[in-house]
Design a protein around this nucleic acid. Structure first.
Ligand SMILES: [Mn+2]
Ligand SMILES: [Mn+2]
Ligand SMILES: [Zn+2]
Ligand SMILES: [Zn+2]
Lengths: 135, 135
DNA sequence: TTTTCACTTTAGAATAATTATAAACTAGAA
DNA sequence: TTCTAGTTTATAATTATTCTAAAGTGAAAA
């Protein structure tokens, strides 16, 4: 994803391409593979990488803005911190609790044969499979 | 589950059957169906139900002791609070985000046909399926 | 029974993640 | 350039949870 695309991505979401947002967006979206992170880990990586430091509140604001805009998804992981994911398509995860690392599983790599029907007037929004790993 | 069984359950886990633990254990385990709760919700329900009030720290201590003893499991739900589950067998969940309600799905009611192999020297510990509901 | 003491409870302080506040700053329309 | 709504930021506040250390208690042993 090029710089111009980052600008488009932000503008099309109604987000002004500020210095901070562009820097965070470049860091998050200009990469080949999915990136899973917490606000804390993102903050550390950004501090290490860049010259100018971005306030923690701005990182929270920006991550939430990106999530609301559909550029990030939230992954549920046991523990206190919230995990985010640059992969916003329907997919699943391996989770290695030793390293606290998430690994993507393509939606097509898991086939569910039998599934119960949703209760009382409810519908199924989506199905998430979480595979816990051990050594 | 009878009172005597509650005592056995506690003793066999190396937990002294104190007044507080017995009261919490009776509330949690003397019921037909699975009970999903947060420490906050449990605290409210116990306060409503019982005469003597139990300190919040004791509820935290007790819930963790029960979890460590294998009498409770933890369910991962999007959000800030930790959810616990009196169903400690391998099973899955529906989640209704409108009501923040969890509903059990028996392990046999979901059959997974295709699953990717675990990465590099890791093994699969368990597979959790989470079905999000909508109206 | 009484004594004893490790285990437990408790109120309150501490911590950690996240969100709110409100003042200073800035992108970009006019 | 000016102007202003949107944004950033330092800091305070909030929320869930854990820690601390003093007081209380179950139950083994005397
Ligand atoms: Mn979580
Ligand atoms: Mn959670
Ligand atoms: Zn992912
Ligand atoms: Zn359950």
């Amino acid at each position: 994803m090029k710089k111009i695309d980052i600008f488009k991505k932000l503008r099309s979401s109604g987000l002004r391409p500020t210095k901070q947002r562009v820097e965070i967006a470049k860091f998050l979206f200009e990469r080949e593979k999915t990136f899973h992170f917490t606000v804390e880990s993102l903050n550390k990586l950004l501090t290490k990488k860049s010259a100018s430091k971005i306030a923690l509140a701005t990182i929270y604001n920006t991550v939430h803005a990106f999530k609301t805009a559909g550029h990030l998804s939230e992954v549920e992981v046991r523990g206190n911190k919230t995990y985010f994911d640059t992969n916003v398509s329907n997919h699943h995860h391996f989770y290695d609790s030793d390293t606290s690392e998430l690994i993507d599983i393509d939606a097509n790599d898991i086939i569910i044969q039998k599934i119960p029907k949703a209760p009382n007037g409810k519908k199924i929004k989506n199905v998430e499979v979480f595979i816990n790993l051990k050594n």
